[in-house]
């Protein structure tokens, strides 16, 4: 019997060692360990043995079974790993085949620039305010110190609806509207669409966008204006951006300035973007004219303030190197997809 047991074990071990596929191992399990398997049969034949021999024999059979099972499991693990390996190999793909995208749309460059400016000023404590695009002459001109027959009215080439109502030529009327409400102090920016009677070409559009800023409080100084815009320029165009304030004239500010920033393409060395000067004109600003305060019901002896205005398209065109303004209104997806 022992001989037989040994033979079974050797036979089983050999078959396990020779099995090359998982199915074959299962066959081996069934043929040796299954209900009708050789080992089970052998165990059944134990009744032919003397009762005193049975426990020892039983133990031997069980040991053999355990040995076979252990060996079988090891072999299965090896074969399973091998099978997985083969499967993975078979599943290899060409990772350079084209991607399957869920196409996502693109923001307009104007909006990207506007949201960037908004983000910077909101961080500095400014509220975003909007105003009407069709506006009273009173707000667009008169309250901004541009009385009837002022040449600035011609210069701005205003679209008129009638003598009292215009398409706003600037976002500045929102300044007057906010000041009139009399809630002080004021820190606000106003993005919006404005209109001027310019024919459409590569650098002009009869409709474009501005962002207006206004701060009114006690003790606001021209130095505050400089500091604020300098910080804005650094955040908008990079930490190394320098600013240059040049005297200028706007009817609603005094003193007034135009602001250049060091060219963000060449860093100020001079390139085709800044036309070799190293500077790019970016916005107009100034201290709110005392007369504007008076017309909006704020006492200029108690309050001072500054205002600034920046052209959105100007920033978008410069920042993204767009060479033709018309592209902004054609909505060609080949253009829009680049942002």
């Amino acid at each position: 019997m022992q001989e037989k047991l040994k033979k079974i074990r050797e036979e089983a071990m050999a078959q396990i060692d020779h099995a090359e596929v998982l199915d074959r191992l299962n066959d081996v399990r069934v043929s040796f360990l299954g209900k009708k398997g050789e080992l089970t049969q052998l165990l059944k034949s134990m009744k032919n043995l003397a009762p005193e021999e049975r426990p020892a024999f039983g133990q031997m059979v069980n040991e053999t079974r355990a040995q076979i099972e252990t060996h079988l499991e090891k072999a299965m693990k090896v074969l399973e790993e091998k099978a997985l390996e083969q499967q993975l190999k078979a599943e290899e793909i060409d990772v350079t085949l084209p991607a399957k995208k869920n196409p996502v749309g693109h923001r307009h460059p104007n909006t990207i620039a506007r949201e960037e400016v908004e983000r910077i000023f909101i961080g500095m404590g400014y509220e975003v305010v909007e105003g009407p695009e069709i506006e009273y002459d009173l707000y667009n001109f008169e309250k901004l110190n541009i009385p009837a027959n002022h040449p600035a009215k011609d210069e701005q080439d205003t679209f008129y609806i009638n003598k009292d109502i215009v398409l706003r030529t600037q976002t500045s009327p929102v300044q007057a509207r906010v000041m009139e409400q009399g809630k002080l102090p004021i820190r606000m920016i106003c993005p919006g669409r404005v209109f001027r009677s310019d024919e459409v070409d590569a650098t002009h559009s009869p409709s474009f966008h501005q962002i207006e800023g206004l701060v009114v409080d006690k003790n606001i100084t021209f130095a505050d204006l400089k500091g604020t815009l300098e910080q804005f320029a650094k955040e908008m165009f990079g930490e190394n951006t320098r600013t240059k304030f040049r005297p200028h004239h706007f009817p609603f500010t005094e003193p007034s300035a135009e602001v250049d920033v060091s060219c963000f393409k060449c860093g100020g060395k001079g390139c085709r973007f800044c036309k070799g000067s190293g500077w790019i004109e970016i916005l107009g600003c100034g201290m709110v004219h005392p007369h504007v305060f008076e017309m909006c019901g704020i006492d200029p002896k108690e309050y001072t303030g500054f205002a600034f205005g920046v052209g959105l398209e100007r920033i978008a065109l410069l920042k993204y190197e767009i060479d033709d303004m018309r592209l902004l209104y054609e909505n060609d997806t080949r253009f829009l997809k680049q942002f």
Partner: peptide, 27 residues
């Protein structure tokens, strides 16, 4: 003030940030 600023030089005017009551930025 503008005449003074012009000849003092806009460049020479210091840069500060508005002091006074803080305001909450808001969209």
């Amino acid at each position: 003030a503008e005449e003074v600023a012009r000849f003092y030089g806009y460049d020479n005017i210091p840069t500060t940030l508005p002091s006074g009551e803080a305001t909450a930025g808001k969209l």
